[in-house]
Design a protein around this nucleic acid. Structure first.
Lengths: 212, 212, 212, 212
DNA sequence: CATGAATGAGGGTTCATTCAT
DNA sequence: TATGAATGAACCCTCATTCAT
């Protein structure tokens, strides 16, 4: 949200920040419930606590709301993921911790992730790419953590693919909860997935991941 | 599609079959392009080769079309997956072949899979569960193949989770193609994923998976 | 209205003709009252005797209604003007009759002419030009009548300008009625204007124009 | 603008004068481009150089702006017409000069005249009449010039009608420019129209009008 | 006096669905 | 069984106007 691609009639940037944040909050609540297409702009305005007219002072089209929502979600995921990474002391244990943190983050943000999975496609090409770039960045972060934490080097392709697998498996915990969360607790899911990842990375595991 | 949850005014079951098949074909084409919500019933009728009135002789609501489409896609995936499994001679090589076949199948049906990922949520609870059951079955099939093909036994949980991972990674090949298909060819993707799966299953790999 | 630049969803051309005619009728009534901009599409639909949905089966945008209205008005003026011209026996008396007929026509269609004067500018460039062409044609018709009816030849420029003056003075009878119709009856207005025209054309007038 | 039918919250009359003048300037620019209805009050405020809030300190409704604009235009036309009339030495040559001046004035103010022609109808009855009175006055002025300049007397009706014709032909030069300005230069238009007028007034023309 | 954020009625348009033919 | 014209609720968005600061 550093430079803003969504136009607003209002000049006061602090107010924009505030209203947009209300808007995103409201919209996420509704999108969780009914998805983007079934949610009306009036509902968004109401849920956000202001009138339809005011809503349109801060955006230009309904799609802008979707963009702001997607952007905000990615932003949040990214920030929390960054916060979970300790670049100062790379180690396998550290890698495991990062992965576990990421999974817990995905558990926290299940609904948001579902929104992204299902609605990003409704963005127009340009904004969609803008958003997907952020996703790529995050996978890139995981990849870097993997590379830096391993004692032995690994092929770039392997790192990239495993990072991608981790990323997806995190999202799936929420997206396929109707399936997974009936068979697994979050902790066992994390433990098992980390275990597979370690094997894929050919890391000897003496102890199970001691997670937070 | 044995007992049909979608009502039709028309009695002639053969005709129903025929019209629905036209309809599904047309709808998939359109959904690929613009998604379910942005496609109108008129467009579906036109693309299917008949009038809007006729469309409504074979369904009750627009959502019925989505259901038929989802159902048909799953049906097709399932049939092709079943065809790829040779239950008669379980072996690790066989397991690899099944996984590879599944990945190729997902490559073939990328667009359809994307439809499912993005639109199933628009089904109402009841029909959604009906459809998801089919997904569960397919994961179950993979799980059974895994169990039956391994020389040593494996925990049920592991089998289920690994089956799930395979399933998801197959879907992701298409869903995340903007990322994956820039870095990997289908064959390397298959080869690497199978490799990880084998490690997760603690199977010693002497040769690389000879696929197809 | 020979070839139709306004799109319709409905195929039955007779029905289109009928509905459009209802629509034009209704719209003219409303435009007379409140002008194009202050009239809503819903009002047009209601006045035309059908629903808003039906209205939009026969047009694409509100502007289409305006175009149809303008086109219809010009068509009517033109047809009536053509009917008033007797090309077979050109003479000064004949010319006077044509001018008088045109003035009476403008008297009949005062309101419609006002609509044209005030709303044509709201058409988009393309359609506006299409409509204005018709106006040019009509002035051209008057010009041809002038030329053919005069005993002596006259410069083309004079004929064109006088035709234009006649045309405008006809329209002004309605447009400036708040002024003119307080001072003149239609008949005196006609008689005087014809008189001036004859002088401009340097025609000796022995008797006053015996009109009708 | 002596006694003002448009209410303002502000007391300082000089300021009112100043702001209104900015407003009229801005509004005319916009009305020329897009007409009254398609111009928003926000745009008017912006073009005038102040905020929407300030705009509404000096008017009560959007229609007030239209009134001020129409009034200002008529005022200007009137003032320039008055300036062109030299009451001290009535003569046919003088009459011709006045008519020519009026035509040139209309050439200068083409766009403004178009605004008037198309938007006056949007004024409410009361204000519309107020504005039309000014028009009547101007035609009256022309009429008086005609009467006073002619050597022989002429019927009042004739004078009125010819004054009206002159008035309209002046406006039409701009209003029908898409037609007239392709066939005539301003000077030939003036020359010819004056010629016809002189004939209508039964004035022998020895020399053509020597215009400026 | 000046500002500009807030408001919400209302406008144009779409589209799932029905039903007479 | 097939058709397509008719319907109107509902959607997205605009903009004249107000009012607290």
């Amino acid at each position: 949200m550093t430079d803003d691609p969504v136009h607003s009639n209002v000049k006061d940037t602090e107010l924009i920040e505030k209203r947009r944040s209300q808007m995103i909050q409201g919209a996420i609540t509704l999108f969780k419930e009914k998805g983007f297409h079934r949610t009306t702009t009036r509902e968004i305005a109401k849920e956000s606590g202001f009138s339809i007219g005011t809503l349109y002072e801060y955006i230009r089209t309904k799609e802008d709301v979707l963009f702001l929502v997607c952007d905000a979600i990615y932003q949040q995921v990214r920030e929390r993921l960054e916060a979970a990474i300790d670049w100062s002391s790379p180690s396998v244990a550290n890698l495991k911790r990062v992965i576990a943190s990421y999974f817990r983050l995905m558990d926290d943000m299940q609904e948001e992730v579902i929104i992204m999975y299902q609605e990003v496609k409704s963005l127009k090409k340009e904004t969609k790419e803008y958003v997907l770039t952020k996703e790529r960045d995050m996978v890139g972060m995981l990849e870097k953590v993997i590379v830096s934490c391993l004692p032995e080097s690994i092929s770039g392709e392997d790192a990239a693919l495993i990072a991608n697998n981790i990323f997806v498996q995190g999202q799936m915990w929420g997206f396929r909860r109707w399936m997974l969360q009936k068979q697994f607790t979050l902790e066992t899911y994390i433990e098992r997935q980390i275990h597979y990842v370690m094997q894929a990375l050919s890391v000897e595991e003496k102890t199970t991941a001691s997670t937070e």
